[in-house]
């Protein structure tokens, strides 16, 4: 299957030898254009899986394959590293405070596309425009940007090496609801315009419902339920999934989906 971008087979992740697994019995596949939600609370192991997907944590058992190859076998500058990119929860903590928005993106372009400084900046400006950042704003450092703008820079940086999968870990949790709406719309736009696959890690079921077609629910390091996101929410089978759905604030008072 050439369109199989990420494949996880019965993987187990530990942060230290002998430590209890942070996640285990994890099996999933991401194909081109897929959207997968990973839902769970603090400590459920969802971020651990995210780290496994981008190759920053190797499984202690089982396998994580990117385009059919285990992360462990992939060297630093192997072009396969372009395939999967991560968007972090806190763009303030994950962006270099000394680099401007355009500098942040240009650096990635320079390294991966081998462009000289000037063309790299031109390419970075194009990518920033794609996420809705133009003009003077892109010359600012993270401290001079709003939360929503920072997250756009985080997304632009991820886009800069031309990924096929974005792994987004709580991309809107730190944002106000009106700003969140902008970022969610942007992620939808990018999925359509670039045909990007999306792995969305979130504790917020409404965001997962909105952005993904399939989802898995994590509890204490295990997948307790998985399936199409719509039926997971409308007809949950596992008691924990039901509890999560019952905990969504304001369900009763809110108008239903249009």
């Amino acid at each position: 299957m050439s369109d199989l971008l990420l494949e996880v087979t019965d993987a187990e992740f530990r942060y230290a030898k002998g430590a209890p697994p942070a996640a285990h019995h994890i099996t999933l596949a991401v194909r081109a254009g897929d959207s997968l939600g990973i839902v769970g609370e603090s400590g459920s192991g969802k971020t651990t899986i995210g780290r496994g997907l981008v190759g920053s944590l190797h499984p202690s058992a089982g396998a994580v394959l990117v385009q059919g190859r285990p992360w462990k076998s992939i060297r630093r500058r192997d072009p396969v590293r372009r395939v999967v990119q991560m968007v972090f929860q806190d763009p303030y903590a994950s962006l270099n405070p000394m680099l401007s928005a355009v500098g942040t993106v240009a650096e990635v372009v320079r390294v991966w596309d081998g462009l000289a400084a000037r063309p790299a900046v031109a390419r970075a400006e194009e990518i920033l425009a794609e996420v809705g950042l133009t003009g003077e704003v892109i010359t600012r450092r993270p401290a001079g940007l709003s939360g929503g703008q920072r997250q756009r820079v985080g997304i632009a940086r991820a886009l800069a090496c031309g990924p096929q999968v974005l792994v987004a870990d709580e991309p809107t949790s730190a944002l106000d609801v009106s700003v969140q709406a902008n970022v969610l719309n942007l992620l939808l736009d990018l999925r359509e315009s670039r045909g990007l696959a999306l792995v969305l890690i979130s504790h917020d079921l409404s965001v997962v419902d909105y952005l993904t077609e399939r989802a898995m629910v994590m509890y204490r390091g295990e997948v307790v339920e998985s399936g199409p996101t719509g039926s997971l929410l409308s007809d949950p089978q596992h008691p924990y999934t039901r509890e999560l759905i019952d905990s969504i604030p304001g369900r009763s008072a809110l108008p239903p989906a249009a």
Partner: peptide
Amino acid sequence: ARPTTRAAGERLVTI
């Protein structure tokens, strides 16, 4: 702007 108010794929209200 709340995702619960829109069907999947439909854009959210932005300000």
